[in-house]
């Protein structure tokens, strides 16, 4: 029972990060039906930004309190990755909006590989650690140990997701996003600035990934390949939940978090993790091709 609760906490922690990244995939897909394969690598870049900014700010000269450094680091990572995502959209995806859809997907793959290998070539493959913003405090409650970092990750993610849900459902920007996603030919006729909304979507998706990246870096190591490793899992989360559907991505993220944590508990080795996750995906897509919350698109002749 104790291990179960313990594992649930771990799964929630990992699932939060997956959900935050999955949101970026799903938002971009929802608005321009592009699988943005570069998103995982944008997440990777964000953790590197967090690493450099965090390390610089934590230096003994400034003597800033940990919480201030944490907030500044997150903001810096959000800003840098939002800028990166908007630039990528502007220079790599926008010229292809009229081209065959596959060209854009290939371009996204290319941008992802570029970011990954550029990081590899300039920064190197060694794993790095984010500085400790807070002293780790471990609480024990009824035999279950959990740290303040875990609580922060789960809580911050939940707040961010609630905030995003509110933005999309209650604000003008959110309404515009939904309008573009609903019908990108009629939306501009109603005065929606489509290009700007697409840029905003990329920026929001990337900055949420940056929050996820900083949180992730507080627990795990940072290396150039994490974009693929974590990115793919987040992508599956988005698909499982129904790509294009924001609440679906959140649910999918937690499902995948649970799959990853509970597979080694049930099966003999952690190497079966990928197998289980992808088989789940395959079976789900065969029986429910549009994900858990996705709605099938009616085909017209």
């Amino acid at each position: 029972m104790q291990t179960l609760v313990q594992q649930v906490l771990n799964a929630l922690q990992l699932g939060s990060v997956y959900a935050l990244i999955a949101l970026g995939y799903t938002m971009v897909y929802g608005i321009i039906t592009l699988i943005n394969f570069a998103h995982g690598d944008i997440f990777m870049v964000s953790t590197y930004v967090a690493f450099f900014v965090g390390t610089a700010l934590m230096s003994q000269l400034l003597r800033l309190p940990g919480i201030v450094v944490f907030v500044l680091t997150v903001l810096a990572a959000m800003f840098a990755t939002a800028l990166l995502a908007v630039l990528i959209e502007r220079f790599a995806y926008k010229p292809l909006r009229q081209a065959p859809r596959v060209s854009a997907v290939i371009t996204a793959l290319g941008v992802g590989l570029f970011l990954e290998n550029f990081t590899l070539a300039t920064i190197g493959p060694d794993p790095r650690f984010l500085p400790k913003f807070f002293p780790v405090v471990t609480f024990t409650m009824g035999g279950v140990a959990f740290s303040n970092i875990q609580i922060i990750i789960i809580a911050v993610s939940a707040v961010v997701m609630l905030l995003l849900d509110t933005i999309v459902r209650r604000t003008m920007v959110g309404m515009a996003m939904r309008a573009v996603s609903w019908d990108k030919f009629t939306a501009p006729l109603m005065g929606v600035p489509v290009d700007r909304i697409i840029s905003i979507t990329f920026a929001i998706g990337a900055s949420i990934a940056a929050i996820g990246g900083t949180l992730f870096g507080m627990v795990y190591t940072v290396d150039p390949y994490m974009g693929i490793r974590i990115g793919w899992w987040a992508f599956i989360s988005a698909v499982v939940g129904g790509i294009g559907n924001i609440r679906g991505a959140m649910i999918g993220g937690y499902i995948l978090g649970f799959v990853e944590i509970f597979t080694p508990v049930i099966l003999p080795a952690s190497t079966y993790r990928d197998f289980v996750a992808f088989s789940l995906l395959l079976v789900l897509l065969i029986f429910r091709p549009y994900g858990i919350l996705g709605r099938p698109v009616a085909q017209k002749v």
């Binding site: 793959l109 590989l113 570029f114 290998n117």
Partner: peptide, 16 residues
């Protein structure tokens, strides 16, 4: 290492 940087970049340019 840089060839894996140049390769994807060429691909993106080609696609555009």
């Amino acid at each position: 290492v840089w060839r894996w940087v140049v390769g994807p970049l060429l691909l993106v340019l080609l696609m555009i």
